[in-house]
Every structure is written in C-alpha cells, then in structure tokens.
C-alpha cells in the first residue's frame, strides 16, 4: 500500500535521525583522527605540528596501554561471568513459588537504578574501607586481618561494584524469559521422568539462549567503557592497576593535556570496540531473527 508519495514522506520522517546520528558519528570521529596525527598540547595552544604516527607508536608502546587493554577485558569478562551465572541462579530461584515475590523482585532490581557514582562511593567508603568499612568489621569480628580492597585488589573491587549494578539487570531479563517458558513443556518432561538437571540442560537453557545473548550484548556496550566507578574510587591506581582504556584516554587528555596522544588512544579504543561489536552484532542479528 506504500505509494511513491508515502515512501517519500517516510524518508523525510527518517531523515532527521539519520542525519543527526551520521554527523554525531563522523564529525567528532574525524576530528579525533586528525588530532591523533598532531603534536597538540592543551597548555601550549598554537604550537600544533604534524607528527605522523608518533602518537600511535608512543601510545601503543606505553606499558600502561597494555595494562589498560587487559584491565578493560578483565572488567568485561569478569562482570559478564558473575552477572550471567549469578543471574541464571537467581532467576531460577525467584521463579519458584514463594511468599512476597513481588516485593522481593523490587529489592533485587534496585541496584540497577543507583547511579554509578553513588554505587562506587558507597562501596568504597562504607563497605571496602579497611578501617571503618563494614566488610573490614566483618573480617575483624571473625578474627581475620581486614582486607584493603582498593589498595591491594583494586580491579577486583571495581569488578564487584560494577557486577553489583548489573546483576539485577541480568536477573530481571532472565527471569522474564524464564516466566515465558511453556509450563506444559516442563511438565511433560517431568512426567517422562526427566530429572531437574536434565530439564535444566535440555529445556530451560535452550529457552534462555536468546535472553543471555541480549544480556551479553547490552552489558558489553556499557562495560567496555566503565569510567565513573574508576574515577571516584581508585583514579586508575595504584599505578595503573585499575586503569582501563576509557580511563587511560581520559587521563591523557584532561589530566596531562596531551590531545594528540589521547586522540590516538581514543582511536585505538574505537577499533577495539568495533572488533567486539562485529562479533556481537552478528550474534544478535542471528538470535533476533530466529
């Protein structure tokens, strides 16, 4: 029923969004690429000179860069494992008949709505502080040395904080998927004598596949650029122990005023995200069509 006329109208309706997103993609990215070939310091404006690939070779050979890549991946993978395994277990539990399920769901989903800076500061000060934190108190009362989370295992501390924020999200999505599972199918399997483990592997897991894919996709987008949690807790330290790529580029640009170097780092981050994105988009394209 779409006439030539209505198709033209359709294009006109889509155009503003496409143009805006295209400009948003192209203009700043083009500028970043341009800056990445310059020697450009914010404190010395007007002295920009063309340096070719010097920024890239400087950035890529910086030991901090390698650490940052590893940390970025550790955060993504660590949080994904915790949230998906934990999310499946929690969803299975919450799917059982119980009292007060509605209120419990509200409690479990709540951390997702807590802004990153609040989550990070509350955990850092009130829980992970080695002197007056609650975790230190628990350890001391059990007779252990209090653990200094942010000084001795900063990356683990950040993974815990971020996982706390995303576990509710994974749980809620997996629970929703679980509740759409056909009850008769489960009962039929039960009557055929399938035990709980068998039922989980052959009926529940395949049904959850699509939801797990979606959780991975969405969380990866956000986890690749974890920033606020690092900024307010460890500032990437001690040393570069908890610096990820996002934080490294930020530090290079706004703390060391090295626009060229930071731009080169930004481009590396874009390339890395694209590699991950290609895999993810293929995966989600497949599952969403099914």
């Amino acid at each position: 029923m779409s006439t030539y006329h209505s198709r033209a109208a359709g294009r006109l309706m889509v155009a503003p969004s496409v143009v805006l997103l295209f400009l948003w993609m192209i203009v700043p990215l083009g500028l970043t690429i341009y800056f990445s070939f310059l020697h450009y310091n914010l404190l010395m404006p007007g002295t920009e000179t063309w340096t070719g690939f010097l920024n890239y070779s400087y950035f890529l050979t910086d030991p901090a860069f390698f650490t940052a890549i590893v940390n970025t991946l550790l955060i993504v993978v660590g949080v994904l494992i915790i949230t998906i395994v934990g999310g499946i277990l929690l969803a299975l539990l919450l799917d059982q008949p119980m009292f007060g399920q509605g209120i419990l769901r509200i409690l479990v989903i709540s951390p997702f709505f807590v802004m990153p800076t609040v989550a990070a500061l509350v955990w850092k000060n009130m829980f992970m502080n080695p002197v007056s934190g609650l975790l230190a108190f628990l350890q001391k009362s059990m007779g252990f040395q209090p653990h200094d989370w942010l000084a001795s295992t900063p990356l683990l501390a950040i993974i815990i904080i971020v996982a706390w924020q995303w576990l509710p999200f994974a749980t809620l999505i997996l629970l929703t998927a679980l509740q759409s599972l056909d009850e008769e199918q489960r009962e039929a399997a039960e009557m055929d004598g399938a035990g709980p483990v068998y039922r989980f592997i052959y009926i529940v897991m395949p049904h959850l596949g699509r939801a797990v894919t979606v959780v991975i996709l969405i969380q990866t987008i956000f986890l690749l650029s974890v920033f606020a949690e690092i900024l307010v807790t460890t500032n990437g330290g001690p040393g570069t122990d908890s610096t990820n790529l996002a934080y490294l580029v930020y530090a290079q640009a706004l703390l060391q005023y090295d626009v060229g170097g930071a731009s080169a780092g930004g481009i590396v981050a874009v390339i890395l995200a694209n590699i991950v994105a290609i895999f993810l988009m293929r995966m989600i394209g497949k599952t969403l069509e099914a």
């Binding site: 198709r7 969004s17 987008i221 580029v249 930071a262």
Partner: peptide, 29 residues
C-alpha cells in the same frame, strides 16, 4: 512503511551506540 533497507538502518543506528565515548571525548571537549 518498512523498506528493504530498514533492518540495516536500524542495525546501523544501534552500532553508533557501540562507539566508545572516549573516542570522541577530546574533540567534543
């Protein structure tokens, strides 16, 4: 009024979300 390209267009829009913010932090700043 979906066309042949609607699906690709939607995927492309989503892919703009994949661009890490740090990639454009410097020029935007």
């Amino acid at each position: 009024q979906p066309t042949k390209r609607t699906k690709d267009l939607l995927m492309w829009m989503l892919s703009t979300k994949m661009m890490p913010a740090v990639g454009v932090l410097v020029p935007i700043y």
